[in-house]
Design a protein around this nucleic acid. Structure first.
Length: 554
DNA sequence: TCTTCACGCGCC
DNA sequence: AAAGGGCGCGTGAAGA
């Protein structure tokens, strides 16, 4: 359904739906209203059709449900319609079923309903969503940005990230040895495994892939350790330790991003992951398969532009603390965030403090900020948080308030209204947090001290909501950037968004358009800033590199 | 045998 | 006083 042009809900039959959509798009580029971009848009892309704008009913329904504290309820058009009519709400079809069924292009379930029924529900649900969004500050922008993100995600999955199989294979061979046949370990890994066994003595046999066996072997050697995490191993004096550390690093590369990964995920010189918009409650994207958001740095040399093309790699510098500055409107903090290196600008506040060891002032500022946003703070960070609190009280209070809200079982939201899930029933029971109005969480009604488990649950929820307001607003900003950049790139023609990872984008573009793309990225960052924060003095600088290969960007 | 879990590590 | 957010993935080990 097109949002404008044809009167809403007027059904007319067409012989060639994809062709009709292409024609309408060329004629007046409406905002297409459909059930699910993820299910429907790939079919248009296959047919060579791209659209400028859409309204994704399921994604928006999900945002609205979350805002209402009904996170996780069915989001299909059918379910949304049933809610409006007060009818029983059907569960969402499982993803597997979605994949195997051939859905109608616009509706969410074409096999039982007539197209007219589908259309009726779409019109009804769309109208209800628009009414709901109009009453919520920022929500219309959020809905548009989420929908635009869905278009970007489908397009990036379709276009793929330029990937050199030869470079990838060469890297693996350098680090691991030649590709082994069968399920054998690569030579270098087998070599390390043998030496690890030798280091533990003739009577011990360990599989270095088994944490349990490693723990036993260290215990037998008189060196009990709590886990086999790398930072724990680093503190142990034993000849097997350096070998194990090297083994773990290489084994990780082999299992997660080795030849099997290459065979599975790269074809035709492109890595094509499936991005999942709205896959993370904070608004960050997730991916299905391929681990697109966890590509190890060492593999970035395999991301190579086509001949005559370049990669414009852009990331938002220090995005989350800048978001906090703009959210909190902390005078001293926004001044620091008004230009250049935020941590450096904050350093003065931490420089005079000699009692916290040898960390440079910039590192102290960074540690304090991260602790405030993540809810961390052990040892040195406790003291640095104190500095933050006294020098930047509003910024400090902003995240503290979010943490308190979380501990009381309340919901917190991003700037545009993306809302965290409510705590589980188990959490409420454990923490006696059913009473949202009580104001002293550490002194529960009923007298006795709260159990250690309950205290831990409270703190965990506080950390979550503390981080949520910043991470989710950063995701708001990134989505706005993406939507703006997509529009600008369309105007340029060939350049394509090929990668997006929380605060970083890669555009694949003809070399002669590198400057134009760079300018488009800067303009998009600026547009995202003013869309979210209006006239804030906080800047969101982009670090942009034009390179042939991703590895050369930093 | 299949499923689920904990672990450990990659990215932001 | 202590307090570390969000994910995906492959592995070995335990449970059904």
């Amino acid at each position: 359904m097109a949002e404008d042009g044809t009167p809403a809900g007027t059904a007319y039959a067409v012989a060639d739906l994809v062709g009709e959509i292409a024609a309408r798009e060329r004629a007046d580029a409406p905002r297409w209203v459909w059930a699910s971009t993820a299910r429907l848009y790939p079919r248009l892309l296959e047919a060579g059709v791209r659209v400028a704008r859409c309204h994704d009913l399921e994604l928006v329904e999900n945002l609205l449900l979350g805002h209402a504290g009904r996170y996780g309820e069915p989001r299909s058009v059918r379910a949304a319609s049933a809610r409006l009519r007060g009818e029983p709400v059907p569960p969402d079809p499982p993803p597997a079923q979605e994949a195997s069924a051939q859905p109608s292009l616009f509706g969410d379930d074409g096999d039982r309903a007539s197209p007219a029924d589908d259309l009726g529900r779409i019109v009804e649900v769309h109208a209800a969503q628009q009414r709901a969004a109009a009453g919520l500050d920022g929500f219309a922008l959020l809905a548009a940005a989420e929908s635009a993100g869905a278009l970007v995600a489908a397009e990036m999955g379709f276009d793929g990230l330029p990937w050199s199989t030869a470079e990838h294979d060469a890297l693996l061979t350098e680090l691991l040895g030649p590709r082994p046949s069968g399920g054998l370990r690569p030579r270098r890994l087998q070599d390390l495994a043998d030496r690890i066994n030798a280091a533990f003595g003739p009577r011990t046999h360990v599989n270095p892939d088994s944490p349990a066996q490693i723990l036993k072997a260290f215990a037998a050697a008189g060196l009990p350790i709590p886990s086999t995490r790398a930072h724990v191993l680093k503190g142990v004096d034993h000849p097997a330790v350096p070998l194990l550390l090297e083994y773990k690093e290489l084994a990780r590369l082999h299992t997660a991003h080795g030849w099997a990964w290459l065979d599975t995920w790269v074809s035709g010189g492109r890595f094509r992951p499936e991005y999942v918009v709205g896959g993370v409650v904070s608004g960050r994207w997730a991916t299905n398969g391929g681990g697109a958001l966890q590509i190890p740095r060492v593999l970035r040399r395999a991301v190579v532009a086509d001949p005559g093309w370049c990669l414009v790699v852009a990331d938002a510098a220090q995005l989350e603390p800048r978001v906090l500055a703009a959210l909190a409107s902390d005078r001293a903090f926004t001044d620091a965030a008004a230009h250049g290196d935020l941590y450096e600008a904050l350093s003065d506040a931490f420089r005079s403090d000699e009692s916290t060891g040898g960390l440079p002032a910039r590192a102290k500022a960074k540690l304090a900020l991260l602790s405030a946003m993540y809810g961390g703070g052990t040892g040195e960070a406790v003291q640095l948080l104190g500095v933050l609190k006294s020098r930047f009280p509003d910024a400090f209070e902003y995240v503290e308030a979010a943490a308190r809200a979380g501990e009381r079982g309340r919901l917190v939201r991003s700037l545009l209204g993306r809302t965290c899930p409510p705590p589980s029933a188990g959490w409420r029971e454990l923490t006696l947090a059913g009473d949202d109005d009580r104001d002293a969480p550490e002194a529960p009604p009923g007298g006795g001290r709260r159990s250690a488990t309950a205290a831990q649950a409270l703190r965990g929820r506080g950390r979550f909501t503390r981080n949520f307001v910043v991470q989710a607003t950063a995701a708001d900003w990134a989505l706005a950037l993406l939507a703006s950049l997509r529009r600008r790139l369309t105007a340029l023609g060939p350049p394509r968004l090929v990668f997006f990872q929380h605060d970083e984008v890669i555009v694949h573009a003809p070399a002669e358009l590198a400057d134009a793309v760079t300018e488009a990225v800067r303009a998009s960052a600026e547009e995202a800033r003013s869309l979210l924060f209006g006239a804030t003095p906080v800047v969101f600088p982009m670090e942009i590199a034009v390179v042939d290969r991703y590895a050369d960007a930093k």
